[in-house]
Amino acid sequence: MYDFAYHKPGSIADAVKILTDDPEARPISGGQTLLPALKHRLAHPTALVDLSGIAELRGIQRDGDRLVIGAMTKHYEIQTSDVVKTAIPALAKMAGNLGDTQVRNRGTMGGSLSNNDPAADYPAAAMALNATFRTDRRSIPADEFFQGMFATALEPGELLVAIEFPIPTKAGYAKMRNPASRYVMAGVFVAKLADGSVRVAVNGAGPGVFRQEEMEAALAKSWSADAIAGIRQDPDGLNGDIHGSAEYRAHLVGVMAKRALAEAG
């Protein structure tokens, strides 16, 4: 790791100021992705801005028909939260199955979403649930937030504060893990929202999370495994590597969609 200055601001405003004043500074939340990257010297930030001292970034609340999760809320807190388990059980279950116990004890939802690793779990949930990303300066809908591999709509210095999830009537998630890294090889989150609309998000398989619109249309007509049985994910543009080709990942999208649907009930 290259050396860096370390700051631990107590407020969002202070954090944003440091990040704005020094464009080479990076925020650190749980650090479960950032620190391994720094150890391999893949990045050279001048300073790390530790967000763990900012109380307003944490917490889980039910706000009417929405579930609001602070960006610095840890996976383990989400996994075990009765509020989350009641409102969106699929999200609690996702949190309980990502990374390992030690990652879940440190890693945060906001950190993961801001990083937007194509093989991370939460982007599928946020996309399928049509989440809203509340930052220090604005709100960003999920469809605009995710901008491809490791890219989001966040501007330099902009901090994710909380994620608002509309509470769906049905939601389910299934994934196939990369056998080695245990990140997502192909995952599908299906959700039927309160307004009756259906959203299906695919993670792991492509260069970033994306919506499977053909499945959305089919499930909007009929919320059943049969409705999507004939839908073939196009492998064009999907990831292929030593662990599986694009064709394999495309196939898994169909399998995981079926299983996610079964989870959703």
């Binding site: 370390y6 631990k8 650190i28 650090g31 479960q32 620190l35 391994p36 150890k39 790390l48 530790d50 763990s52 383990y76 116990t101 030690q102 990652v103 004890n105 440190r106």
Partner: peptide, 14 residues
Amino acid sequence: ESVKSCTMLAVQAE
């Protein structure tokens, strides 16, 4: 709580 001490900065343990 269990954490990977190789994936946490010493300063984060303040």
